[in-house]
Design a protein around this nucleic acid. Structure first.
Lengths: 191, 191
DNA sequence: TCAGCCATGTAATGGGTTACATGATTGA
DNA sequence: TCAATCATGTAACCCATTACATGGCTGA
């Protein structure tokens, strides 16, 4: 069946992950391995799928006609499959982006669950865990700052930079909160 | 086999959800429906399981001996099952809390994925979506502030209040970021 | 009188994670 | 020489979500 060239695609209602992968394919032809790497270096702050997830999304994108697959033989490396976004895929991506329904997003934090039930813990155990998380979060902030220096003046990175700024703002706020928690816990019943 | 009373339980490595439900049971005997309500009113910011998830967790807790189940017949209401945490369950909870490995948590934000690929959208579509998300986030912040006024002076809410402060800090930071994004988008190529 | 919420759950589906596989290259 | 990393994926599992089911009460 022939579809008219600029027709809007039926909103095929895939999970966000599919569109994220589809979006990454706009950067160029990639293998699943490549997609994973790029994702880890760009979307990582708010989107972190497993490899296997990416592979199955890519297969799905092909089955929907949103991408094409081409096998490439390699020596010294396992053969790989390269995926390229199609026009139909670009249209699907734009349709999803333009769809007015936005999901704001969620946080899943085992650490905060622990803090919530902190009354059942020794002060020392909780303090140690807060400090550990704080240390990692500070590292994370450094990483984000490193990315910032690289992309902040690249005009084509305007939108990624916006999301990075969200990460920076959130990271800084959380770090300040962690410092406050540490202070509060340390003054709560003396040493 | 008889276990010694205060023995450490083998770290049975359940998902965080299990321990969250177990933790909520320390507040008192509850049905699955109750657990869901309490969770929505307390952990909601960083932990939002579906009802069915809670029901299956409760069944698992029983099967592990971490909770007991008692059927209660009701008229005008469907019968219900009440769950009560056991000593063994309390020990399992404490052991999990004291375990040094903490997972910091993750963010999953379809909205940020959209912003990331904002170059593929019309400025108007993106702006509208940012404003919509900002509106919801402002509402969310109001809700958190409402909770704050209720619990901020209750000593027994000390730890829940700590997590609430994290939510407040993050929500404020994200709102400021959203305002910045709106300003940036509005000045980007004139009206 | 009728939609919507209270109240209690089950069933079906699928999204996403961890573990499994393989082999070459590189740094300690 | 041995672990780590690059490079590429598949298989199994299970966590978690959405849809389904039931019936009384309540407010417009």
């Amino acid at each position: 069946m022939a579809t008219r060239p600029n027709q809007r695609l039926a909103p095929s209602d895939l999970p966000t992950t599919s569109y994220a992968v589809l979006g990454l394919l706009t950067f160029g032809t990639m293998s699943g391995y490549d997609v994973k790497k790029v994702a880890d270096q760009s979307l990582a702050f708010f989107f972190t799928p497993a490899k296997s997830q990416i592979y199955s999304e890519l297969r799905r994108l092909v089955s929907l006609g949103y991408a094409t697959e081409r096998e490439v033989e390699q020596d010294r490396r396992p053969d790989k499959r390269l995926y390229r976004i199609t026009d139909r895929g670009r249209r699907a991506l734009r349709d999803w982006l333009d769809t007015a329904e936005v999901e704001s997003g969620e946080i899943k934090s085992p650490f905060l669950v622990k803090v919530f039930f902190g009354a059942h813990m020794s002060r020392e155990a909780l303090l140690a865990q807060v400090k550990e998380v704080r240390r990692r979060d500070a590292e994370e902030l450094q990483t984000l700052k490193g990315i910032e220096t690289v992309i902040k003046d690249q005009e084509e990175m305007f939108f990624p930079y916006l999301t990075l700024k969200c990460g920076l703002a959130a990271a800084r706020a959380v770090l300040r909160w962690e410092d406050e928690v540490i202070r509060e816990l340390e003054k709560r019943e003396g040493p």
